[in-house]
């Protein structure tokens, strides 16, 4: 069975990518199971999708804990512990990473002993919305059992409701990725499930009885949500041009759904980038159009360049 996990952010087409890959395997004659895992849906938040493909009916379910391939659309997720990108990755796993840098550097940086394949990033739009489809195209080639026509047919099927333009753009991106990883075709191998003879006994414990104050799902500390850096979900960043801002002192800050914009004493707004999720509502409502949208990746690159 092929066990493939796709990681990215809500809005990067991870679920779509998993469905393209699932349909491509299905079209190639495999039994397939694909499923997204995203808890409460949130654009920009870490999510994953799971694709299993085999020659026999699939009975495994849920999160893939021993992946044959992890496809990572957005490398910034490596710094989000909850994303659990490298869960179960071992010497036999392949890591497909969309981003910059070469495979050897990533292997060293992540202390991996298995194969790493880098899929060069392909411009901002492709990254923001078509990352899932690109990784699906690349994964199809890494498996080596899905033909170009099968990949094209799967995309046509999955994007039928979005019309011919979206289908054509996605197909072009997925095929570019399919071609880009051609030197690694077939590197992804099916793995067998663990045998019942050699397994690590689960570390079961008897749950202790604790006082209701501890054992009730209550949060006693105030404002703990500040601990969750929801700014990490952002794929686009709002940036204020203070020369254009007319100091209205209320529109962007009032309409920000996350209360991430405060107004200073001089009536100028300030964005809390630790918690701004990048919805861009402020960009669309600012009367003098003093807020612009910047791709997060570009904004971070600029910050890095400016750092001493």
């Amino acid at each position: 069975m092929y066990r493939i996990r796709l990681h990215g952010r809500g809005g990067q087409g991870i679920k779509t990518g998993s469905r393209i890959l699932g349909s491509a395997f299905f079209g190639a004659g495999f039994e397939v199971q694909d499923a997204p895992v995203y808890g409460a849906e949130r654009r920009g938040a870490a999510m994953s999708a799971h694709v299993r493909a085999a020659r026999t009916p699939i009975r495994e379910r849920g999160v893939i804990t021993r992946p044959d391939l992890v496809a990572l659309v957005d490398e910034t997720l490596l710094q989000v512990p909850a994303a659990n990108v490298l869960l179960g990755v071992d010497a036999a796993s392949v890591l497909l990473l969309q981003g910059n840098g070469d495979a050897e550097t990533w292997r060293a940086r992540l202390a991996l002993s298995g194969t790493v394949v880098v899929l060069p990033a392909a411009g901002e739009r492709a990254e923001a919305e078509l990352g899932g489809a690109r990784c699906a195209g690349a994964a199809a080639r890494l498996a080596g059992v899905i033909s170009r026509p099968q990949l094209i047919a799967a995309i046509a099927q999955e994007l039928a409701s979005l019309g011919p333009v979206a289908t054509a753009t996605t197909t072009a991106q997925a095929l570019a990725a399919y071609d880009a990883v051609a030197p690694h075709a077939g590197v992804l191998r099916e793995s067998r499930p663990a045998a019942a003879t050699a397994f690590a006994a689960p570390e079961w414990i008897d749950l202790p009885l604790e006082s209701a104050r501890v054992a009730a799902p209550a949060i006693f500390a105030a404002a703990t949500s500040v601990e969750v850096r929801t700014g990490l979900w952002r794929t686009m960043r709002p940036e204020i041009d203070y020369a254009r801002c007319n100091r209205c002192a209320w529109i962007c800050s009032t309409l920000c759904p996350d209360s991430a914009i405060r107004v200073r004493a001089d009536r100028s707004p300030e964005i809390d980038l630790e918690h701004c999720k990048g919805c861009m509502i402020c960009v669309s409502v600012c009367p003098p159009q003093a807020i612009r949208a910047l791709p997060e990746r570009a904004a971070r690159a600029r910050e890095l360049a400016a750092a001493p």
């Binding site: 949060i219 500390a221 105030a222 404002a223 703990t224």
Partner: peptide, 12 residues
């Protein structure tokens, strides 16, 4: 999680 919920890290 309980450590965060109990407020052991103090108020923000």
């Amino acid at each position: 999680l309980q450590a965060i919920a109990a407020g052991e890290r103090g108020m923000p």
